[in-house]
Design a protein around this nucleic acid. Structure first.
Lengths: 356, 356
DNA sequence: TTGAAAGCGCTAACAG
DNA sequence: CTGTTAGCGCTTTCAA
């Protein structure tokens, strides 16, 4: 097996200079005669330009990085498929990393990408703005998907609720006065506010009054939207957070159900939490939707498999990934502020009327 | 924002040659004094060696490629997580591609990886050996995971069953006489034979006689194992294949149930097919397990969510990915023939006794 | 133990 | 329109 042909081989075989070959192959100007000959020789030699040389020359690796917390979270898998589809269409490679929701691993992966000179990155962030500042300072074009990095917990506002309120205000266009958003990166997110609001109204319409929110890492905006939707005063006990693992999600769901028997409906902030809620409810002999109504964020194939099938707030995971990839690729000059995609409440069978 | 420091910067600042810096940073020999100084300067300058230069010099990109048919197939997501975990531990990047089960896209992605000089690749293959020969000929170290490329359909044996039988014979160590396996790549697969056999015996023990196999692309070995487990003569109609999409899986399942009302149990060759089987059964008002018993290949989190929870043949997806990554990384010299991991029948609630 | 120098394959000035 | 040339940042002989 002989080694791959280089640009030099092609140039020699075609009797032209290497620059000409380079030009022809990258669509530069050349006489039809020359162009034809070069193309012929290149094809004949089965020449494929090496990305190595080009990358070094341009001091940057093509393609993009993609960082998600966990691929076995079906929503992240959908999002990744979207990114891959766009990248494939563009012929660009995607370097993938999974962070397990751990800011430290996230940082390390960012470092790895920097080392590879990958300067375009799509991320479902786990760390806060402090985690992400280095990447952006290093000149990376980053597009956040699904959620934004949390505010750094530099001072008092350490709990999700407070952060979430901040984000909510920002979402509303209300200037928060202090601490301007330092991160200059576009994002592709779903309209969490509308999605949650619709779900809460739907549950309200069914007569539910004690509604809980079960969230995970990165669900702060959703929690805030939930708070806004149920209206003050928010029963603090009815907003609980898990830490990301399936075990933690289960524990949170189980704890919630046990501590608040008066609960009649729950909104799960993501599919892993919805899964946990179904499991915990079954374990505690709570019937869905007879004893407890459930709405889950994320539409995933298995939502239909449950008995009853789960009512969900669908967000277009694949589209979000595709759009994010488009954004990060066409980051030419203008930096669009980001995209917000609509959600849709898909009513199946996991919600029923409130029974006294 | 100043540009990143290069090896030259470090060399100058430390008053040594670039070669020395390179040596020190890659653990070569150097006097303690020099080493210390270089390290100090490097740290001070926040120097990170650029992979670009190294890659070009070594004419190869570090890390590995990973090709899977579809990340929203939870098993593939698990496998990918395993690969990523190993890669992360080794500090190596992973270039991901999703092929949608299409050999053509697979070929294109292989071409892309070749262009990037990624010379290590883990794949859940969709194409046949003809698709993969170029990659291996080009000098790539390929490790197949979950399944092996099918024999090229050069002549008569065009249908899955025939191919499957071939593979089965190979698995048994029976030399097939003709057509020696030309592909020289190790693999990490589950013990499909044992898994399927155990499932079939379990169903037999429950009294089932009309058992069907519902397969997808790449499930040839499983189909063959199924044929062997039920024993000749195999009712051809009871072995059906879908093409990979969820729609196709649903159609196959639905068609199977409708055409064979005498069916009392089905083995789904993968989680997407299991999903389809549950959906199709419900649509046709077939009760699980009253009317139809179901065993699904792959254990996935949502298998427990179904009512009743699904009895599954679990294969260690994450481990398989991790092992494959280990294999492809430590491909030093010896080329191990591959690994076969055990499966486990996890009995939940989707199988019941056969009722006349 | 160390430094100088030669590229790896490619692109982008700059001449011709 | 085309060829020559100078590197991109790194590793690796080869001498000193």
């Amino acid at each position: 097996m002989d080694k791959r042909a280089t640009i030099k081989d092609v140039a020699e075989a075609a009797g032209v200079g290497v620059a000409t070959v380079s030009r022809v192959l990258s669509g530069g100007s050349a006489s039809p005669r020359t162009r034809e000959r070069v193309l012929a020789v290149a094809a004949q030699l089965d020449y494929r330009p090496s990305a190595l040389g080009r990358n070094l020359r341009q001091r940057r690796t093509g393609g993009m990085g993609l960082l998600v917390p966990d691929l076995t979270d079906t929503f992240h898998a959908q999002l990744a498929e979207g990114v891959l589809a766009c990248a494939r269409a563009a012929g660009e490679p995607v370097v993938l990393g999974s962070t397990a929701g751990d800011p430290e691993q996230e940082s390390e992966l960012i470092g790895m990408l920097l080392e590879q000179s990958v300067d375009r990155l799509i991320a479902v962030p786990s760390g806060d703005e402090d985690t992400w500042a280095p990447a952006i300072r290093a000149g990376m074009t980053v597009v956040f998907a699904d959620r934004l990095p949390a505010r750094p917990s530099s001072d008092e506002d350490d709990d999700p609720a407070a952060t979430a309120v901040n984000d909510l205000m920002l979402l509303d266009g209300v200037s928060s006065g202090s601490r301007p958003r330092p991160l200059d990166a576009p994002s592709v997110v779903a309209d969490d506010r509308a999605g949650i609001r619709t779900a809460v109204r739907y549950l309200r319409g069914l007569g539910h009054r004690r509604i809980a929110f079960l969230g995970g890492p990165g669900h702060d905006r959703r929690a805030a939207a939930f708070g806004a939707a149920v209206g003050a005063p928010v029963d603090e006990e009815l907003v609980v957070f898990a830490t990301g693992s399936r075990d933690s999600a289960y524990a949170a769901a189980s704890g919630l159900f046990q501590s608040r028997p008066d609960l009649s409906a729950v909104v799960a902030g993501g599919n892993v939490l919805g899964e946990a809620a179904v499991l915990a409810a079954r374990e505690l002999d709570l019937r869905v939707p007879r004893d407890i109504s459930l709405v889950m964020y994320d539409d995933v194939p298995w939502a239909e498999l449950c008995s009853p099938p789960l009512t969900v707030i669908a967000q277009p995971g694949r589209d979000m990934g595709y759009r994010a990839a488009e954004l990060v690729l066409r980051s030419g000059g203008r930096r669009p502020r980001g995209v917000m995609l609509p959600t849709e409440l898909i009513i199946r069978g996991s919600c029923g009327p409130h029974r006294q």
